[in-house]
């Protein structure tokens, strides 16, 4: 699955800090760092059918929680007792990118956090997906005119599913999870 970075957004901005941040992040290519990224390779190597690989990949997506601000509280509500995320495969909210599949970005991202977000995304193993949770990660939210934030996380990362709301109820995130699973199983046709 090829991923495109929105490269025309890395423009040179007015302040020196913006220039430094964006210059350091421009021009890095994504090389697949897992040997069997394509499903056909994986199924051939393991000796199982493609349907089995698809079933296992879709139904056990482990999230990496990146809860920064208010939406993190609703994210914890998504994982807690009333709306249980574990029944659909989203086990073990962990903070390490090496063992997770989905990155749930919840909260506004400031210019100081952009190198960290990018570095963590590049450390995730393929195949990997991103859900932008809440309005601040989608478009900047109510802080649109602030001098210190990024207007939407899709200026830095490729996003698969957007969830609107301020903050979205945990049921909304449940629906977004189901949409992501449908998107993955529809796209896997290797």
């Amino acid at each position: 699955m090829a991923e495109e970075y929105p490269e025309e957004e890395f423009k040179i901005a007015k302040k020196e800090m913006d220039r430094l941040v964006y210059e350091s992040l421009k021009g890095r290519e994504v090389k697949p760092n897992v040997m069997f990224a394509k499903m056909s390779d994986l199924s051939r190597a393991l000796g199982i059918s493609k349907g089995m690989v698809k079933w296992s990949r879709v139904n056990s997506l482990w999230p990496m929680q990146f809860g920064l601000a208010c939406c993190a509280i609703e994210l914890m509500g998504f994982g807690s007792a009333r709306i249980d995320a574990e029944r659909k495969g989203y086990l073990l909210f962990r903070s390490t990118p090496r063992q997770s599949d989905v990155m749930l970005v919840a909260g506004w991202v400031t210019k100081s956090m952009v190198p960290e977000v990018k570095r963590l995304y590049e450390q995730m193993t393929e195949p990997r997906y991103v859900i932008a949770f809440g309005e601040c990660a989608t478009c900047g939210g109510p802080w649109f005119e602030s001098y210190n934030i990024i207007r939407g996380i899709d200026q830095v990362l490729p996003v698969d599913v957007y969830v609107a709301g301020c903050p979205p109820k945990p049921e909304n995130l449940f629906e977004a999870m189901i949409k992501l699973q449908e998107k993955i199983s529809g796209k896997i046709e290797d």
Binding site: E16, K111, Y147
Partner: peptide, 19 residues
């Protein structure tokens, strides 16, 4: 973490155009 010349809460701070 910025290196501008003027403090943000002054009235002459140029902001709002870079969005």
């Amino acid at each position: 973490r910025w290196d501008g010349t003027e403090g943000p809460l002054r009235k002459g701070f140029a902001w709002g155009e870079d969005y």
